[in-house]
Design a protein around this nucleic acid. Sequence first.
DNA 1: CCGAATCCCACAAGATACTG
DNA 2: CAGTATCTTGTGGGATTCGG
Lengths: 117, 117
Amino acid sequence: MKTEFCKVDEALSILVGKWKPIILLHLFNEGTLRFSELKRLMPDITQKMLTKQLRELETEDIIDRVVYPQVPPKVEYSISEYGKSLQPVLNVMHEWGSAHTKHMQEKRNRKNLEQSS
Amino acid sequence: MKTEFCKVDEALSILVGKWKPIILLHLFNEGTLRFSELKRLMPDITQKMLTKQLRELETEDIIDRVVYPQVPPKVEYSISEYGKSLQPVLNVMHEWGSAHTKHMQEKRNRKNLEQSS
DNA sequence: CCGAATCCCACAAGATACTG
DNA sequence: CAGTATCTTGTGGGATTCGG
């Protein structure tokens, strides 16, 4: 692979953001969620951040945003057809991440063992 | 998948950093590289950043750092055995990233077409 | 209910200079 | 050659308030 054509950064740029992976996970799990439902699933996120992250995912075509013109407002989010192509990427990253957590855990254990001996 | 156990963030935390993917790509391609060789391959990175990113990858066990005690100094970096487990992750991300670049490109083309009609 | 607007801080990253 | 040490700046993310 030529370094000039490395597109890992491109994928990274879509996924980085403190809340994007968890937002995507909820949408993959639940299918469709209202803004308020997402907010309830992630109590620590502020409305501003939730809005921002959703907008960014929307401009990248990863998620669909449907506004129901009514009062009170109702906005539903879901993974777009195109966005579903992200599933395998997220899976691979999740699995490697799990393995890595375990790896670093065991490393710490070994170090503690050395110290106590 | 339970949201509490989402480990995508874990993988992300290893890969984020403006230069990490390209550093890893060079090391995967070349096998072993000296500090100065990496610097030459990435003219725009500062020594400080190169050092920092390499240190972070090292503490996560992704790369090996070998110091030759001689004057002038010589330090070689390479992907660790464990680090090689990242290869498939990077591949998947690269391929999705390429496809996404194309997707957004075509989207722009369609929009331009609409405007000119 | 869903968001926009504003203010704020921490931290990633760059520029530059120095050293064993 | 392979790094530190400082200083500065840009930006991601948080708290809070206001609006349709």
